[in-house]
């Protein structure tokens, strides 16, 4: 199964951390360790992180098949890191990272690091449509996209019914949410927790 999904940027700042198995270290130290190992690897090397320091860090598993593997891919300024065990196919996980990124791209229309920064809850919701509890839920980008849209619509409707004054700037309209229309700004302030 998949034990963790991490996204961090090229300076090692975490943009998403999701642990499906509790680790004995803090999330920060895991991100820092993996970042320090990944960031020194020049492009063109393989996507599997295998370092002597890592085995001690993740906890040594006697059986080679049970060894945790770190599979990563870098996109522009972001590293997408999956920590998996022997039940997952390494190459399959590489494909899965691609699927996840494509889903993000569809939802955010040309996803960039800032989208992940400002909509970190959205990223979690999207990830939840790909992986649930460390097991792969869906690998088909179309299906994932549909599910994401459906969930987003449900949140939007719920928000709209709770905040009749707002312009419905919630959910999957990230660019709109950042727009500072006078009315949007006002309603955002008036409703307190609006514009999420």
């Amino acid at each position: 199964m998949i034990h963790a999904v991490l996204i961090f940027n090229t300076s090692g700042v975490a943009r998403l951390t999701k642990f499906y198995t509790p680790l004995h270290q803090s999330a920060q130290s895991v991100v820092q360790k993996i970042f320090s190992l990944v960031s020194t690897r020049p492009a063109g090397l393989c996507n599997f992180l295998d370092a002597p320091e890592l085995e001690q860090f993740l906890g040594f598993k006697g059986d080679a098949d049970e060894r945790w593997r770190v599979v990563y891919r870098s996109y522009a300024t972001l590293y997408f890191v999956f920590v998996v065990d022997g039940a997952e196919s390494e190459l399959g996980i590489l494909d899965l990272i691609q699927v996840f990124v494509e889903s993000l791209d569809r939802s955010f229309e040309n996803v960039c690091e800032l989208d992940l920064v400002f909509h970190f809850d959205e990223v979690h919701h999207i990830l939840a449509e790909v992986i649930q509890g460390g097991l792969v839920l869906e690998t088909n980008v179309e299906e994932i996209d549909l599910a994401i849209q459906e969930a987003a619509r449900a949140r939007k409707e719920s928000f709209a019914s709770a905040n009749p004054l707002s312009l419905g700037s919630v959910g999957l309209t990230p660019r709109g949410a950042n727009m500072k229309t006078p009315l949007g700004w006002l309603t955002g302030k008036l409703t307190g927790a609006g514009a999420r």
Binding site: K18, P22, D121, H124, H125, A151, A154, R155, K156, E157, S158, F159, S161, A162, V170, G171, R196
Partner: peptide, 18 residues
């Protein structure tokens, strides 16, 4: 409310442990 419930469950998955 669904949009609030989502926030609650997200926070729970991120911060709760056994």
């Amino acid at each position: 409310k669904f949009h609030l419930k989502c926030v609650g469950y997200l926070a729970a998955t991120q911060s709760f442990d056994q």
